[in-house]
Amino acid sequence: MSKKINLTLKVWRQKNCKTPGAFETYQAREIDTAMSFLEMLDFVNEMLTHEGRDPITFDHDCREGICGSCGAVVNGQPHGPLRGTTLCQLHMRHFKDGQTLVVEPWRAKAFPINKDLSVERSSFDRVMVAGGFISVKTGQAPEAHAIPVPKEAADNAMDAAQCIGCGACVAACPNGSAMLFVGSKVSHLNLLAQGAPEKKTRVLHMVHQMDHEGFGNCSNSYECEAACPKQISVSHIAFMNKEYRQASIP
């Protein structure tokens, strides 16, 4: 059963990527524990709007943990303290009455801040443009059963393909590295027979673009795996390393 709690919020407010930001403190009173974290922010925004103060900007859309729009660092942890959960699926019952929550945007060089908690993640799209696809045109596809895919490979590919592109891995990584994001896409496509013809260029080009965007290097701290709302395994990073090694040796 839900109950009401009071919270102190320290929220990062920043007008845009050019102006410096700072924390502002808000009192969030009478928060129902059945609310999601974003509903709590909505609630605070309603309060701010009534007071004539600028509401907090944060990206969100589906609110069921799949679109990958939302995300903020809550008390030092991307998407908050609950493992395998996006911010929109994190409910307030996981917080205590009287608790102070520090809410910050993802921070990484490759994710400039748009406003408040919203960051620009188009670097991810550009990594995808570099090779995150199988070059089959509409109409070229053979009959679906023409190439059987072993269940194990299909399941592994699916594990990797679950990535929602939220960027929590980058936010959690002490080096701002996007290896889990890139690794899971390389894994997804390179594990399937359909992705095999382009597997070498795919990994080379995606890694090249990843570096170009200014993401850091993996130091195998595995913080990304712990922060990933889909709990994608770092074994996909190892897989990418292997694919990269094999692809770069002519």
Binding site: F133, I134, V136, T138, G139, Q140, A141, P142, E143, A144, H145, I147, P148, V149, P150, K151, A154, D155, A157, M158, A161, H188, L189, L192, Q194, G195
Partner: peptide, 22 residues
Amino acid sequence: NNIIDQCVAQGVPFAREYSGYL
């Protein structure tokens, strides 16, 4: 039917049976 063909070719990891078929 063409959609399924197209999606499989794009690398959509549909659920498969142990035979490797969809």
